[in-house]
Amino acid sequence: MAHGDQNQAHHGHHITPIATYAKILGLLVILTILTVAVARPVSGFDAGILNAGIAFLIASVKAAMVLAIFMGLKYDKKIHLAIFISAVFFLIVMFTFSVLDIYTRIHVESTL
């Protein structure tokens, strides 16, 4: 049986110090405030077509911190990181093809 894999996972389990959790929590709160601050209705900040991109970037950084520290991916086996990255890859595939349609559609229909 391959039960050995399970045993391996239980050994060497990384224990993250409370202080690290607190720092990450602080960063998450700061980034949340930043997300609100760069929102056009709140601050009047307007980066045009990049508005959504900036929001996605901040959200992605937050998600990466949660995954790496709170969910322990940073200290886990690399196969789990690969699984996560594959999920991100398919998300990128979905966005890329959808955006390909939307932007080429706008271009074709534009009378400018």
Binding site: F90, F97, L100, D101, I102, R105, V108
Partner: peptide, 18 residues
Amino acid sequence: SFFVWGHHLFVAGQSEVA
């Protein structure tokens, strides 16, 4: 299978390029 879904949208208003 993850790269082919747009064939359901050929006449739904999807761009010609897509």
